[in-house]
Design a protein around this nucleic acid. Structure first.
Lengths: 244, 244
DNA sequence: GTCAAGCATCGTGCATACAAAATGCAAAAT
DNA sequence: ATTTTGCATTTTGTATGCACGATGCTTGAC
């Protein structure tokens, strides 16, 4: 690497020249850098155990080392990279055991959220959820996996949002972003295609009854099932490194 | 401010001269800076809503702005400060509502942890827990609040550790560190002195029986009780700002 | 007298410079 | 041949410089 494209004196020289009234909001560089790095890791362009060389990344992303360092620190708090003291950062490996832990935690959080959601969901929110659920069911019936999975994710997020607890929501978002990687590697979990749909049906029924305990229990079981499928896929595929 | 104590060429010059085999590990500046800032916020030396002026803090902590900036970013992920885009950081306010959310989340996590702990705790761990519990009971009986609360915290941590899920443990640690501030402001919660002890007794019994569901339920109720006491204390004291 | 525009000042965000630690390699000693 | 020690190089950690945006004050117009 180490090309000669020096960021030099450019950087953020121009702005506002393009769209006039567009509130671009000018996302700080360290933020977009973090997003791009996160994608690079999730998509496997940076492989497990690989070092995050600050100067290289700075050159690739065309910023200086400062925002790169800040971005790496952020990724570290998200668990995407391990920070070695004085020896830089590496893409963190995830063992099957760690994935199991992660999904166990997600299951717990989503159970709590489901219980609270059953108590606090508004009629309006519930109707919206119901519509999403129906759309998902149609995609399921049609065998449209991509759309099905996307809606599935959205529904989980909506339920957590309905719990009306931003702290819980933040924890959930963080865990889900970590799970992205595992999902990406094990693009399987599609074996659960059918049971998962049935569980969602029952979950919706429990929410309709505003039965928190039942909704929580179903959600937890649902998540643990997803986790098991994921772990199984990772264990057979087993191209992923463990590290640590 | 802006004193003339330039860090200049000193910094991390000497090492290893003192203790020979001591693995000092040389904590990076941004890390110790984060800890010191965190303490300053928790202890109220930096008040809610107050701006974190990078140059000032750099002078006070006798480092340059760079590690200060990195530390502030870390505090932001921990929720101790709010990051205004382009306008620096402020000590985040916590409304009573936010405290309620926080403790609701803690209650959920500790319930999950208790359930898992009941399944996974080793005999050895349980015995240690039992001894801690007994010591706590003695402090309780003797009216030694400080020691009582310290052991109380340790027991909660030990139970989470016994759940054998590092992800859950990390979430818990993060939430607890946020709760520190609320606890500091409302140094009350001491009204719960008695019920809390009874709940701990029942919790230990449930763990002894390896009854996860019961242990989880007790723990959650226990935490929600603590939360209610805390919120009540904050509402009467009500010197804390809300911000947002 | 109030409000707005312009200007001075301050502060953050990013870039870059520099020093110390870590790493790798080679040469020498065993 | 293997290991160790010293040196060169790479890379991180910290400091500082610089530019643009934000903030606040002054001055002028209505």
């Amino acid at each position: 690497m180490s090309d000669m494209s020096h960021p030099k004196l450019l950087g953020r020289s121009r702005r506002g020249a393009g769209a006039p009234a567009a509130i671009v909001r000018a996302k700080p560089l360290h933020e977009s850098a973090a997003e791009r790095l996160s994608d690079m890791i999730v998509e496997g362009r940076l492989r497990v155990g690989e070092r995050l060389h600050e100067a290289n990344l700075a050159a690739v992303l065309e910023v200086s080392r400062t925002p790169i360092r800040e971005a790496i620190k952020l990724l570290a708090t998200e668990g995407l990279v391990d920070l070695l003291p004085g020896r830089g950062a590496r893409v963190s490996g995830f063992s099957v055991e760690q994935v199991r832990e992660l999904f166990e935690a997600i299951a717990g959080v989503e159970r709590n959220a489901s219980e609270l959601a059953a108590e606090r969901i508004t009629e309006r929110e519930f109707e919206k959820l119901q519509r999403m659920h129906e759309r998902m069911a149609r995609h399921h019936a049609a065998g449209e996996r991509q759309a099905y999975f996307r809606l599935n994710q959205e529904i989980h997020l909506a339920i957590v949002a309905a719990a009306k607890n931003t702290t819980l929501q933040a924890i959930h978002a963080s865990l889900i972003s970590r799970a992205r990687r595992a999902r990406y590697e094990a693009l399987a979990s599609e074996a659960r295609w059918i049971e998962a749909m049935e569980e969602h049906e029952r979950l919706m029924a429990a929410l309709a009854d505003r039965n928190g305990q039942l909704a929580g229990a179903i959600m937890q079981k649902h998540d643990l099932g997803t986790a098991a499928a994921m772990v199984a896929a990772l264990e057979t595929g087993s191209s992923s490194a463990s590290a640590r």
